[in-house]
């Protein structure tokens, strides 16, 4: 079953290569996006384009992060788990860019407007809660902190499941009329959570 090639690449190197691929595939689209946007080559409204690109990008990365564990278990590829943190950090990074786009280019540092939008628009409130949770998870992913936290670390990082739910709500509420795309994302999100059903059940027993 295992391709022969695997014999010759050490696990450590595999992880290294995978991480390289992740860095490149996460960073190049970002650089490309902003290069185009700054040069007004991103359609009529570059602001809308960068908000949507980074929003969808962050959500995709979050979902990919949640796919790693099930795939690693199913195909017995334990080393994949070593890429989880990097993937999660890029999801956070895209989320930060998304927020920054909103603040810098949509409301253009009008802080009154920024805060009134956060408090008055439920979909933005939900987005901000998700992002704040991501901040906590990103900070506690630092190895030293992780080690110090012991068992509580896993408990804290279970908030990932809440975050994807919040983002799915945020996405659903943000669209004007056609909800096909958010519904597709809901299906994927619920599928990935369904895979953890035993874990959720154990919390309530």
């Amino acid at each position: 079953m295992v391709p022969k090639l695997n014999f010759y690449i050490k696990v450590k190197d595999k992880v290294l290569w995978l991480k390289l691929v992740i860095h490149v595939s996460a960073l190049i689209p970002l650089v490309n996006l902003y290069f185009k946007a700054f040069n007004d080559q991103l359609g009529a409204d570059p602001v809308e384009a960068v908000i949507h690109f980074t929003g969808i990008g962050a959500f995709n990365l979050l979902l990919i992060t949640l796919m790693i564990t099930p795939i690693a278990k199913r195909f017995k590829l334990g080393y994949l788990l070593k890429t989880r943190r990097l993937m999660g950090l890029y999801a956070f990074c895209y989320g930060l860019f998304h927020l920054f786009n909103f603040l810098a280019f949509e409301v253009q540092f009008d802080f009154y407007l920024f805060f009134s939008e956060i408090f008055e628009r439920p979909y933005i409130t939900v987005g901000l809660v998700a992002l704040l949770l991501l901040v906590v998870l990103a900070v506690t992913s630092i190895s030293v902190i992780k080690r110090k936290m012991g068992r509580r670390w896993q408990q804290l990082h279970n908030f990932n499941y809440l975050i994807v739910l919040l983002v799915a709500i945020h996405f659903y509420w943000s669209v004007k009329s056609d909800v096909t795309e958010p519904i597709i994302y809901w299906v994927i999100t619920l599928f990935l959570l369904r895979l953890r059903i035993d874990k959720f059940k154990s919390w309530f027993n």
Partner: peptide, 15 residues
């Protein structure tokens, strides 16, 4: 053009 970057298609607007 972004599509040519390959990764862009994976990470964003996949649907």
């Amino acid at each position: 053009q972004m599509g040519f970057m390959g990764a862009g298609a994976l990470l964003a607007s996949s649907f």
